[in-house]
Design a protein around this nucleic acid. Sequence first.
RNA 1: GCCCGGGUGGCGAAAUUGGUAGACGCAAGGGACUUAAAAUCCCUCGGUGGCAACACCGUACCGGUUCGAUUCCGGUCCCGGGCACCA
Length: 880
Amino acid sequence: MALHESYEPRRVEQAVQAEWEQTQAFRVVEEAGREKFYCLSMFPYPSGRLHMGHVRNYTIGDVIARYQRMLGRNVLQPMGWDAFGLPAENAAMNNGVPPAQWTYSNIDYMRNQLKSLGFAIDWSREVATCTPEYYRWNQWLFLRLLEKGIVYQKTGTVNWDPVDQTVLANEQVIDGRGWRTGAVVEKREIPMYYMAITKYAEELLADLDQLDGWPEQVRTMQRNWIGKSFGVRVGFPHAIAGGGTLWVFTTRADTLMGATYVAVAAEHPLALHAAQNNPALAAFIEECKHGGVSEAELATQEKKGMATGLTVSHPLTGEQLPLWVANYVLMGYGEGAVMAVPAHDERDFEFAHKYKLPIKQVIENTKWIAAVRDGWNLDEYRYYEFNGDKWKEWYGEKDAGIAINSGKYDGLPFDDAVEAIAADLSAKKLGEKKVTWRLRDWGISRQRYWGTPIPMIKCPTCGDVPVPDDQLPVVLPEECVPDGSGNPLNKYEKFLQCTCPKCGGAARRETDTMDTFVDSSWYFFRYACPGATAMVDSRADYWMPADQYIGGIEHAILHLLYSRFWTKAMRDVGLTTVSEPFRNLLTQGMVVAPTFYREGKDGRKQWFNPADVAVTVDDKSRPLSAVLKTDGQPVEMGGIEKMSKSKNNGVDPQTLIEQYGADTARVFMMFAAPPEQSLEWNDSGVEGAHRFLKRLWAFAADNAAVLKTVALPADASDTALAARREIHETLQQALVDFGKYQFNTVISACMKMLNAIGKLEGKGADAVRSEGFSILLRLLSPIAPHLTHELWRGLGYGDDILHAQWPQLDAAALKRDSIELVVQVNGKLRGKVNVPAAADKAAIEQAALADENVQRFMEGQTVVKIIVVPGKLVNIVVKA
RNA sequence: GCCCGGGUGGCGAAAUUGGUAGACGCAAGGGACUUAAAAUCCCUCGGUGGCAACACCGUACCGGUUCGAUUCCGGUCCCGGGCACCA
């Protein structure tokens, strides 16, 4: 086959993709006994067009899939669509198109984009979560988990927009106000369905230890999120509303003797009771309802509180402690009440300081005790700390001190103090040791249209009744158009009307839909058994767990934790034997680009795309200023940020592919940064990647006649042998890097190889050139599959490069007669020496000491010792 | 606020995990080819000093361990991700 003179990416890529399509090159079936590799990328939300983050994610996945395939494994790489969600409803509000229609047309467009990138995907397994064939199994498992008591109902807090009369997502609350109405958002309690993920907390925590293919940082984040903590449940008896006990949970029972007040959430029954005859308190409780429910917002808001005028009894001393209502205590967490120890908790300290509540120190830092022994005047210093608005971090460290001012507990360290206090509380029936979790049950109800209908029926006589299995799926009507005033299903009689499965009477359907995290918690099971007549079938046993999962670090907690939970729940229903869905995890970094803006008079920023901005630089090419190309007027530089619509700093992958081709796009993305780091967009970097591929093609075209030479002549020149050694040394590194999925240095190795064989001369040069180029093509083929496919066949190396053998290292090529060693004096580089590869320690030392520059730095000093690192360096330690 | 990361030339990065800091590429400067431009090719390229050999400084900042630290330890500053209804 004749090779075209110049590199024409469009022609090559279309031809190669057509061949893959025709031969169904990436279709896979289960083959018992053959080693499988399930390469899974997080599926995209069909937002309209691919963004660079998608291109990066799926290129990484594709390179891994093709690499594993060349190593001989049976590789599954599927793709699908996370198709339910909020953006489709927002689009509907803007353009009046039903979410279903918008979503399906986005999917069609994005599927074509993915195909143009040449990914080795088995499209016969495609899944879209908004199809009844998929979401019916969300409903089916929901019902199984309801039977098992894993799904249950309770109230939860949501953001309520009082103007639009609708529930808002956290994203839709900006500075405590609704994003469309600007109205101050209120917290509202509504009934919701929950999944009891906390029943799996212990297992979710323990199994993290086995996930050694996951990044340590992700495991740490999940551990902290689950947050197992050991503490004490403490009761404070009181005479309010006929008397009772107010319960709190604390991990610092050792500080109980320092509790100076007790605080409850605004919604707590005692708070509501106290407010009955206290209009000021009632107003404060009302005020606490303002603002969003997100933890970030709650944790950063100003700490406010109000005394109820009531008291509770300290469980050990009987002392009356004031009862406060505080906005930082949350009804949904723990008991909705906390004991406050201002001396040893920073937040309590701040609060006590603000409201002039007593502060009583009951822990002394042992370091300070040593200071006292050494004659420091501690009282003076402590006085200063407490009265100077300051709080020292160590006050909160449980291992730092011993109890003081605590009566019989004085002198006890943390563990002993907790034991003793817990025992005394227990004897009084006012407390016991308890394990608690930070992890909360998963609320899955959404008051939204575009999601999986929750399969429940509300019957006026029977209450909430599950939909029987034979009536599944509960199909979501696809013609509704949300208008921002709540869930359109609430007004859609065709959907609402039904009969009660229990009594046969007229009833209404539940209109809440499921959190979209449900959809994404098990799609990888469905890929493994497309068209299964049950939720999953035995084919999934072959493929699961996924050998490699690739996706953004932003999913490190929620999606990955829910998927792990859902997999365990499926296992306990008997659907799988797998306990963990993802064996190895690669968290890819973001794609970032510079931002530019102008600030309007109203403080609103208008963002300009980097393509429309010209940046001037100084003589070191550091950016100085920027102007808009269309009007020549300056714009502000807003720093480097994640590519996004809101900052208008995205680069459209489509333009890139059309201009340079998929191979260039893939090479640039893999070369610019290692997968886990963030990748900064750079147009001239794309040019560089394209230049490399053009050079590669030109080399092939120029040398087509000699690139079939195979045998290395026995009398090959030294330069040819040196080049061959360089190629194999580079290959050695590249093979290691491929195994580590560090593709940027693999590409760098390919560039080095091309450099090495490009300027090769002398006897045997053609043979080395031919061997080197065949290695290079195969190494690069997972990254730039189209061009390497065309060249491999065009040069006659073989038929389909997909079936070529992965390059092997030739140890003989690496042999060296002499090696260069670095010589240091006191750790500083002073010279280099060449020694025979077989030289012993004495010979190396001798050679090193003989170096002229080394001797200069040893003059007048005596040698203390000589450190020889074989093959690396010699360090001579001298002293005056 | 809480949890988890990151910080190396003008820029993206590399460094076999404690052993030559800056591979590979981009940008920039100089040169060749060309009537010219584009494309391509060659050379220089961390800072300071020096004709040079070379020396000193340099991996955010301060300190420590070590013969030797970008790498390990302690602290500080800055940037990013997540915080349960964005996905």
